[in-house]
Amino acid sequence: MNKELFKGSVFLNPVPAVVITSKNKEGKENAFTVAWTGTICTNPPMLSIAIRPERLSYEFIKETMEFTVNLPNSFQVRETDYCGVISGRDIDKIKKLNLTSKPGHHISAPYLAEFPVNIECKVKQIIPLGTHDLFLAEVMGSHIDKKLMDENGKIHFEWANLINYCHGEYFPMAKKPIGQFGFSVAKNPIIIEKFAHIKSYVEYSIPKKENNNSLTKKHKKKKITKNKKK
């Protein structure tokens, strides 16, 4: 595997694309898109988001120390992108996109009813890092679309058609698993059979790029002949 060496840069991809909703003490609401988020603790349940200090939502969240993480599906990719490129200082994005803002159950920050998963959070710590500040927050509760739960109460996030953000582009989440935690050392015959087709690959295939600017010898000849006639 031949590799190219790059200087320090975060090439961690893909990451989830989420929409963060917040409300300031005056009652003004805002929604903006975040790709830098992640789970950081199980007990207490905690997650993190990274925000630039110049963002309007930064002001709202720092003021109230609350926010909600809304997970969009693939059909809401335009809304997700819009919330990331338009400032809440210029327009009410929630109203513009005809999204339904619902009051939080545990916090004052709203959640978006149309999005399949909503996670209510209280900020516990803010860490200045550089271009972004890291908000560490405890999860107070979540709203899950009942359509994502099977008869046994298991949540199937793959049914939600969630969005991945990868190097500037949005991709849908795969619906079929290629493994599950611990399957590589599983002794359960059911699990072994389920993922028996999965093999290890050292190399991966990269689609060949087509050079649209290149002309075949035949096309080049025709082009030259045509120019001569002129």
Score class of each variant (00 low, 15 high):
S214V: 01
S214G: 04
D145W: 03
Y165H: 15
A174R: 12
I163T: 14
P44I: 07
P172Y: 07
H143F: 06
I51D: 00
L71M: 15
N2G: 14
K62F: 00
S205C: 09
K146D: 09
K230D: 04
Q76A: 15
P128D: 03
N164E: 13
K25R: 10
V202L: 04
A35Y: 10
N70I: 05
I51P: 00
A174Q: 13
I206L: 15
S57D: 04
K28D: 09
K122C: 05
E59P: 00
L215T: 00
N161I: 05
I192F: 03
F183N: 10
K199Q: 07
W159L: 15
A113P: 02
E59F: 01
K199S: 05
G104T: 03
K25T: 06
L112D: 08
I127Y: 02
G27W: 02
F115M: 09
I155Q: 06
A174K: 13
C121T: 03
P53C: 11
I40K: 05
L99Q: 05
A160E: 09
K154T: 03
K209I: 05
A137C: 11
S184W: 10
R55K: 13
P207Q: 03
K199G: 01
V139L: 12
E29W: 01
M65L: 09
F60L: 09
P189R: 11
S214K: 02
G104H: 06
S200M: 04
T21L: 02
M1D: 11
K95C: 01
F181R: 06
D133I: 02
S74C: 14
I190K: 12
S200A: 08
C83A: 13
L148M: 05
H219D: 11
G104Y: 03
I51W: 00
N164G: 15
P116M: 06
Q180V: 08
G104R: 00
S22T: 07
E79S: 12
T37C: 15
K124P: 10
P16V: 05
A137R: 02
E26M: 08
K228A: 14
N164M: 14
Y165L: 14
F157V: 12
A31S: 04
K222T: 04
F67N: 03
E63L: 03
L134V: 13
Y58T: 03
G88W: 01
T80A: 15
E79C: 13
A17N: 10
F115I: 04
I86E: 12
S101R: 03
M65K: 11
P128C: 05
M173G: 15
V117E: 03
Y204R: 01
E26S: 11
P45W: 10
P177A: 05
W36V: 05
E54G: 07
C83W: 04
G153A: 01
K62G: 00
S9P: 00
P116C: 08
